[in-house]
Computed example of a mutant assay.
Amino acid sequence: MSNFEMLNNVEHADLRIKLDRTPEYGDDVMFCMTYPFEFRLVLSHYPILIYQDKDNNTIFPIALFGFEEGENLFLDNGWNARYIPIMVQRQPFSIGFQQVKGQSEKQQVITFNPLHPRVNKEIGERVFNDHGGYTPYLDQVVKMLESIDTGHQQNALLIEALVKYELLEESTIAITLKDGSNYELVGFSTVAEDKFESLSAEALKDLNDQKLLLPITNIIASMSNLGNLVDIRNTHLG
């Protein structure tokens, strides 16, 4: 967070955000974190996998966009999908924390990366209006950041349940394209369907009570989108 600044309507009165979807603006990513509250929308286009970030010792679900680092198969004169995951949409904003004098708990604040290629003062959506108030765009960003904060809690519950019921299955996903080239996706896990199908009624009730049963079935259903990504990549081959 060292590059992030706390947003305010005095220093950043002229701030604008470019909303075009291009590699130059940081959209050339292979995957991004996703959350159970958006799984229904995500699975309309993207495979949902579980990724282990060994550098930070964290495990979380991701939406997959390509087969190698820097590849986003949905970028072509814009982002060609009806839904863009919220962790992409929210750029360059994030939630930060500020210590308020006289209070023991830190207060959440909106922060942004001033070095992000979307940030400028000439082109794009204004962040503040002429009177210093939030624009509709910034109102939307705030709602996204609030959803993301809730989403982190949902992800923690989801991963805890997947580990508890031994549903995580490390997978090497082999991809073969029409030109004969091969790719292997490593470092990802999927939901073990056989173990899921054999869960006891008690376990299924536990997952349902935590509102995790539907997200888990969404993850399983999303795997059919791997074929769609292969089709897109084959189209790019000509």
Rank of each mutant, 00 (worst) to 15 (best):
12 H>W: 01
174 A>R: 07
197 E>A: 12
6 M>L: 10
112 F>H: 04
202 E>I: 11
160 E>F: 13
203 A>L: 03
74 F>V: 02
122 E>Y: 08
144 M>Q: 02
49 L>K: 03
18 K>M: 13
59 I>G: 04
82 R>F: 10
211 K>S: 13
141 V>G: 03
43 L>W: 01
236 H>F: 10
211 K>F: 11
201 A>N: 14
169 E>R: 02
12 H>P: 14
34 T>W: 00
149 D>Y: 09
104 S>P: 00
147 S>A: 14
130 D>K: 14
236 H>N: 13
236 H>P: 00
154 Q>G: 09
46 Y>M: 07
173 I>Q: 05
51 Y>F: 15
68 E>A: 06
88 V>C: 06
224 S>M: 11
115 L>M: 11
27 D>W: 00
58 T>Y: 07
77 N>C: 09
57 N>M: 13
202 E>Q: 14
118 R>Q: 10
59 I>L: 10
132 G>R: 12
226 L>F: 15
10 V>D: 07
203 A>V: 02
173 I>K: 08
168 L>F: 06
90 R>V: 02
43 L>T: 05
74 F>R: 00
95 I>A: 12
162 L>K: 08
89 Q>C: 09
66 G>N: 03
187 G>D: 13
104 S>H: 05
229 L>F: 04
111 T>S: 12
27 D>R: 05
36 P>I: 03
222 S>I: 06
124 G>S: 08
230 V>L: 09
8 N>M: 05
144 M>W: 10
53 D>N: 15
162 L>D: 00
1 M>N: 07
209 D>N: 11
130 D>M: 11
1 M>P: 00
